[in-house]
């Protein structure tokens, strides 16, 4: 939860927001048993947007982005991802999941496979890419996250930051249109946070559509074009980063920002 200043220039020239919709969520509600976790969520994400979602613990941030690739099921309302309506039909679910990359707090790499196999598995089995081609793609993205030399090691032999970068590369190998991040840096030590954030910034500079749950406010300031604040399962406030941080409207947002930024 630090306001880790990012000591690099962020090139915003490639970060173009198009007016095509990538994700459209309307009137979405979700319950865990009788507990109403998500209430009337309305959210439209255009292609090329970088959205940071923040909010206190238990406010439903993870649940929201997990609904987008159907790791959680919503009970009411509609989610359209890249033109595909998310329903309980398993075919659509697998299709959406293969278009949407997801990076988890605890990496969720497959410990019995090497880094390279982690990256080639889904392209080979889901996309039916020939093995050789999948390996070339995997090496390309491993180079992009700056760990090609670890390709033949197992996840257990890598540091946390390296593992998270592999997880990002693994998602990228599926050539997703949208990337979801669920607190990708909160299980990491400070010096590793930076290397993962650097990777994410590069991704943003390449024009990727990103939806990112994080408390890295430095990242939000420099990369995001919109910050969403959630509390008690609702979207309480959303705004451009500068406005959001300097001029929050709701009391709950102010309270949250004062806690997180330590003023």
């Amino acid at each position: 939860m630090s306001d880790l200043a990012i000591d690099r220039e962020v090139d915003r020239s490639q970060m173009q927001v198009s007016d095509e919709e990538a994700i459209q969520i309307t009137e979405m509600n979700k319950w865990f048993g009788t507990f109403h976790v998500l209430r009337d969520i309305n959210l439209t994400v255009n292609k090329g947007e970088r959205i940071v979602v923040c909010g206190p613990s238990g406010s439903g941030k993870s649940t929201l982005i997990r609904c987008i690739n159907a790791l959680e099921e919503h009970q009411r309302g509609q989610i359209i991802v890249d033109g595909t309506v998310l329903s309980s039909d398993l075919k659509n679910v697998d299709k959406i999941r293969s278009e949407v990359g997801m990076v988890f707090q605890h990496f969720n790499l497959f410990p019995h496979l090497t880094i390279l196999e982690n990256c080639t598995l889904a392209p080979i089995w889901v996309r039916k890419t020939p093995k050789k081609e999948a390996e070339e793609t995997a090496m390309h993205f491993l180079e992009k996250v700056k760990i090609p030399e670890q390709a033949l090691k197992y996840p257990g032999q890598l540091s946390g930051g390296q593992q998270q970068r592999v997880a990002i590369a693994r998602s990228l190998c599926m050539r997703p249109r949208i990337m979801l991040f669920d607190e990708p840096t909160s299980a990491l030590d400070p010096e590793m946070i930076k290397e993962v954030l650097d990777t994410m910034i590069e991704l943003a500079q390449d024009g990727m559509t990103m939806l990112c749950v994080t408390h890295e406010m430095g990242f939000a300031r420099q990369v995001a074009n919109r910050v969403i604040f959630m509390d008690q399962g609702q979207i309480v406030e959303q705004n451009e980063p500068e406005e959001f941080f300097n001029n929050p409207q709701s009391d709950r947002t102010k309270l949250f920002l004062s806690q997180i930024l330590g003023h």
């Binding site: 997801m102 988890f104 889904a122």
Partner: peptide, 27 residues
């Protein structure tokens, strides 16, 4: 097995049998 393994497999778009065979059962 941690739940994350199932979710990791799901999030990549592997179907039930693929994730069982390639991710879950080997572990």
């Amino acid at each position: 097995l941690p739940r994350g393994q199932f979710e990791g497999a799901d999030s990549l778009g592997l179907n039930y049998w693929q994730s069982q065979r390639l991710i879950i059962m080997p572990q």
